[in-house]
Every structure is written in structure tokens, then in C-alpha cells.
Design a protein around this nucleic acid. Sequence first.
DNA 1: CTAATTATGCACCAGTCACTGCATAAATGG
DNA 2: CCATTTATGCAGTGACTGGTGCATAATTAG
Lengths: 233, 233
Amino acid sequence: MGVNGIIHHSMQNLDSPLSEALPARRGRGRPRAFDRDAALDTATTLFWSKGYEATSIADLTQAMGIGAKSLYAAFGSKDDDLFTQALHHYVRKYEGLAWDRARQATTAREATAAFLHDSAAAFSGAVFDIPRGCMATIASMGCEGLPALQAFAKDVETTFSRLKARIDRGVAEGDLPQDLDTARLARFVETVQAGMSIRARNGADRSELDSVVDVAMAGWDGIVSAASAAGRS
Amino acid sequence: MGVNGIIHHSMQNLDSPLSEALPARRGRGRPRAFDRDAALDTATTLFWSKGYEATSIADLTQAMGIGAKSLYAAFGSKDDDLFTQALHHYVRKYEGLAWDRARQATTAREATAAFLHDSAAAFSGAVFDIPRGCMATIASMGCEGLPALQAFAKDVETTFSRLKARIDRGVAEGDLPQDLDTARLARFVETVQAGMSIRARNGADRSELDSVVDVAMAGWDGIVSAASAAGRS
DNA sequence: CTAATTATGCACCAGTCACTGCATAAATGG
DNA sequence: CCATTTATGCAGTGACTGGTGCATAATTAG
């Protein structure tokens, strides 16, 4: 409950990207015959569902409905350019699914619960027809020599730093104890969300993920009091 | 503390596999010029560190020090046979790292804490020179059409069912409340461990993972009491 | 020693990989 | 109309993919 509201709000955002904002600042040459933003969105979904390594140029061109030459002219090479742009596109387009409702929460606890529950809804693919799990998480499991792994790592740091910032705010506003180890708590929440991404990939539905979130949040008080004791056990 | 003890115990098990148990039941033909179990171990480590898709036959043969023909003769095709055997080898050889100490615990809580802390030690690569994270978790993030994904899913179900069985035992032995939703709790622990696998892949060291486990276990009492109330919040 | 059996090394297969050269098409600036 | 600029379609690049055929080596059964 409450999740659907924000989901529909985000859905409007999803269907009206800022691609139309710049209608076409076409210079002199022949105009592009396809929608660049739509093509990038298609590529993002493909990378997301199949993984980086398993997605070939042929897969991409077929799904986008364009030729390989056009793909390279518009996005550059697969490794360094296209995938990086897809990651950025993913973050820009879908972060609202996990963060919109959390941003409106008045306490750190409510924000965390909203973040995790909305992640559950998004990861399970129950709200949109989007691939399961977190694209950045899935991509990071691929190769080790991938140069765009840095971009991923940065994104994960973003998730962590956002969580920590929200928890820090909770401490500052008094809904969490002053001596709380906020980084520890943020890392825990981040880890739970990462695990949910994997569980979603392996078939966990929304209710199971919601259940995991409920269990995690049920321990919140004990977690907070223990973390403020500077880490026992 | 306490973790190192079991780690050294497991290390002995690791260095003395049951490969020497069957010295060589060689039939008539030319004897194999390489240690089949050692080669499978090498393949397992490669798949583990690089992922299934990114590991080519050339990578495997080079690391094993054998020719492609010998590889196919000994293990079969990459998709259906080699990778499946590598997964089984992985589970058989390394499950003790996560479960040995948990099996000796007298309560479900102690068993869960041991399972997660030893997973932290193993996933961070701090105890052995092994790739980071859980091989099955990493493999599951790869392709979607992979036939050996069933083998993986079964393995994950094994983790879940073991956790649930241990928690059920705790209920039966009285260290957990009778009306506890054991499946919910087991799914939560499974999700935390999966998240730790991802965090380890992205550079989290042992101390960070241990910290995550401490935070999770700090909420144990609240989790147990909430889960026994049949899922509030 | 011979026959049978199994393993190995080498060359090699068709298919796919990411990627590009080139001629042509379609737009704009003058 | 022309020059310039950009996009497209097609064919094709060398390198690599997983996987094999074949001759040979090394072993055992008789």
C-alpha cells in the first residue's frame, strides 16, 4: 500500500523522458532515422536482462532496428561508450522507482523502509515490464576486466552515500541516536538491497522480497541500539 | 575470533581432497597425463573469478595446461558438462567454509551468526586465495538461457532449505518461539548472504562484511519477535 | 608381440565476435 | 545548383568462439 501511488507517479516520468526536450538540434547532415533515446533505452533493457557479455552487437542492432554502422555512429564502441551510456540512462530513468517515496519520508526509518519496499517492487518486475533485479548489480557480476566497472562501482557508492546521508540526517534531526555508526547501518541496508536483486533474478516475487524487507525492518530498533553501542558482537 | 579455528580446519580438508582416494582405476588405454580433479579445480576457480560467459575454452586449456581435445575427452562440452561439474565441485569443496562451524552451533542464532560470519570470511577472500563472492551467485547473474542455471537454482534452494532446517530445529529445541515463520527468516538470512556476495565482488573487505553481519544479527531479537507475530509492519 | 583401447597434439571447422570501408542517401548553408 | 555534412546499408575485416578429425602415442589384455 502506498507503493502503487508513487509507482504511477514514476510511470508518468518514465513515459515522458526529457528526450523530446531537445526536439532536434540537427546540424547540416542527413537526419538520424531513429530515436536516439528510444534506441538507448532498448539497449539498456537488453544489457539489463541479458547481461553485458551475453549481449552482442547483433542482438542490439536487431532489437533497436538499426544497422551496426548507425549504432557506432550514434553511441560509439560497445565496451567504453554504449554500455556506459546505458548505465547512466538506467540510473537516470529508474532511480526514482527506488528513491521517490523515500525522499518524501520524514524519518530515516521510514525512508529506509520505503527505499527497500520500492526496490522490492521494482526488482520483482511487478510494477513495470522491466528486467528483474538491479542493472548495475547484474553488470558488476560479469567480467573483471570490464572498464565500465568503475562506472558501476561509482553508482553503488551513490546508493551507499545516499543511504548514509539520509541516515545522517535522521541523526541530525533526532529520530536516530547521536552515537549511531551511520556508515555501518547504510552498508547493511545496501547489502540487503543487493541481496534482493539477486533473489529477484532467481525468481523471488514481490511478496517474498517485501517479506524480506519486513524482516529486516523488524530488527531496526535492535540494529540501531546495537550500532550506537559502537559495534558489539 | 573462533572463525580462524574452523578456517584452519577447513583448510586441511581443502588440501586433502578425496581425489587421491581413487589412485587410478585405469582401464586399458593410455593413461591421462594430468590430474583430473586438479584440472576441474582450476576450471572451477576460473569460472568463479571470470564468470561463465567470459571464460573461454582457450582460457581453460591454458590454465589447466592441457589441450582442448583432452578437455573435451575428460569433461565434455563447456555448457552442459564442464560448468555443471565445476558447480558441483565448488559446492562439495567449499561449502564447509560456510557451514562447518554453523553445524557445531547449539542454537539457531549461533548457527546463523556462524554461517554469515564464515561466509564473510570466505567471500572476502581473506582466508584462502580464492575468488571473491559465491560462485553460484555470480554464475546466476550471467546468461538467462544457460541450461546449468537449473543446477544453480537448486544450489540456492539448498542454502535456503538448510537455513530453514536449522531454524526449524531451533524452534523444535525451544531456542526460538513456536509460532516463528521460519521460511521468512531463512529467506532473509539467505538474502543477506547473497548481498554480501555482491559486496565482496565490489571490493568489500572482511571487516566490512563482518560488520554487516553484526548489524543483521543485532536485529535478531526484534526480527524473531516480529516474525513470530506472523508478519506485522 | 599383437590387438584393442584410451589420451594427446595438431590442424582445422563453421560460426560469431566487435568493428569498419565504401558508396549512397538525405539533409543544410551558401 | 552546388558543396558540405551527416546517416545508412551492405559487404567484409581479422580475431576469436566452441568444438572436431585424424594421426600418433601410451597403456593393458590376451
